[in-house]
């Protein structure tokens, strides 16, 4: 299974520890898509912070990732939470030992 497909599956568990296990210890996760919903962009450094931040999100609002396409290091998907469907493009910038080291998400315009 492609690591980005695993990313989607782990996201859909809505379990922050499972989701964080997709990432390397010193990962960097950035996401500018929330700015489309009036929220702050995310810069998450370290697996512990992935766990903490997504524990807050998953606990407060069920979220779903719908896979659209995976091509090379790019993942097109839709993030859905109550009242919002957000087309996103994730780019895998670095992978090591089956874990995501650097991953960047942006709003998908196309």
């Amino acid at each position: 299974m492609h690591i980005l497909e695993k990313y989607v599956n782990h996201f859909n568990s809505n379990d922050s520890k499972v989701f964080a296990s997709t990432f390397a210890d010193d990962c960097i996760f950035t996401d500018s898509a929330p700015t489309k919903a009036g929220m702050d962009p995310m810069y998450v450094a370290g697996k512990e912070c992935v766990d903490m931040i997504f524990n807050m999100y998953f606990s407060n609002m069920p979220m779903k990732a719908t896979l659209v396409a995976v091509k090379d290091n790019t993942l097109d998907y839709i993030i859905s939470y109550p009242g919002f469907d957000m087309p996103c493009r994730g780019t895998l910038l670095e992978e090591k030992d089956g874990k995501i080291v650097r991953y960047s998400v942006a709003f998908r315009e196309d």
Binding site: E48, M52, N55, S59, N60
Partner: peptide
């Protein structure tokens, strides 16, 4: 309650 319990506080992690 859920919102307050899940606020991320890095110094309290773990």
């Amino acid at each position: 309650t859920t919102g307050m319990r899940t606020y991320p506080i890095p110094t309290q992690y773990g």
